[in-house]
Computed example of a mutant assay.
Amino acid sequence: MPEQPVSVCDESVYDQLYREHAEKICYYLYYKYGDMEKAQDIVQDSFAKLWMNCSKIIFGAAKSFLYKIANNASINEAIHQKTVLKYKSTPQKAYTNESPEFQMEEKEFMDKLNQAISGLKEGQREVFLLNRIEKKTYKEIAEMLGISVKAVEKRMHLALVTLRKKIGKI
């Protein structure tokens, strides 16, 4: 008799998914967007959406579903925050040993880098940040995103080519 597929609607399976992936997704979002509280909120929302759609999601696709939902929610939040920040002034450091010229150049470079990274295609940005910020291997990234290692390599290559064109060698 064939084995029954594992149901995400089973509370023990859902709990297992949460224990295995919640923290990883949270750190992924935190490294990608820099806001731990917002990352935790998005993780909770993502798992709530998984539960609401549990009958439609097969166990093998639950991880990629969670990452996709979390990433899309983060992108929407980032777009919202950019709009909000556009109208707020940025606070200045109270004291620093760095010259004003260095501070200005550093800020310009960081702005340029952040703009270049945010301008990458979603898949390229995701692979770039997972590799360079989270120090994930291409194999780990491929498993996490449900794609081949070759696809990860191609996305990273395209991301680096794009970034080099926009800001020079990093």
Score class of each variant (00 low, 15 high):
2 P>Q: 15
4 Q>V: 15
5 P>M: 07
5 P>L: 09
8 V>A: 03
9 C>E: 03
12 S>L: 11
13 V>Y: 01
16 Q>V: 07
19 R>N: 10
19 R>H: 12
20 E>K: 14
22 A>Q: 01
25 I>Y: 00
26 C>I: 00
27 Y>L: 13
27 Y>E: 09
34 G>C: 03
34 G>H: 05
35 D>K: 14
36 M>W: 15
37 E>L: 02
41 D>G: 05
41 D>E: 12
42 I>W: 01
45 D>Y: 11
46 S>W: 10
47 F>M: 11
47 F>I: 09
47 F>A: 08
48 A>R: 13
49 K>W: 01
51 W>A: 13
53 N>W: 00
54 C>F: 00
55 S>F: 06
55 S>R: 15
56 K>R: 12
56 K>Y: 07
59 F>Y: 03
60 G>F: 04
60 G>H: 05
61 A>Y: 09
63 K>Q: 13
65 F>Q: 03
65 F>P: 02
68 K>G: 08
69 I>T: 08
70 A>Q: 04
72 N>D: 05
77 E>P: 05
82 K>G: 06
82 K>H: 11
82 K>A: 10
84 V>Y: 13
86 K>P: 05
87 Y>G: 15
88 K>R: 11
89 S>A: 12
90 T>M: 12
90 T>K: 11
91 P>C: 15
92 Q>H: 05
93 K>C: 06
98 E>D: 15
100 P>G: 14
104 M>P: 01
106 E>M: 15
113 L>F: 08
116 A>Q: 04
118 S>W: 08
118 S>K: 08
121 K>C: 06
121 K>I: 02
126 E>C: 14
127 V>G: 02
129 L>C: 03
130 L>R: 02
131 N>Y: 09
134 E>W: 07
135 K>F: 02
137 T>Q: 05
140 E>N: 00
141 I>K: 00
144 M>C: 08
145 L>M: 12
147 I>F: 00
148 S>V: 02
152 V>L: 05
155 R>K: 07
157 H>K: 12
159 A>M: 04
159 A>L: 05
160 L>P: 00
160 L>H: 03
161 V>M: 08
161 V>I: 10
162 T>I: 04
163 L>W: 02
169 K>H: 12
169 K>R: 15
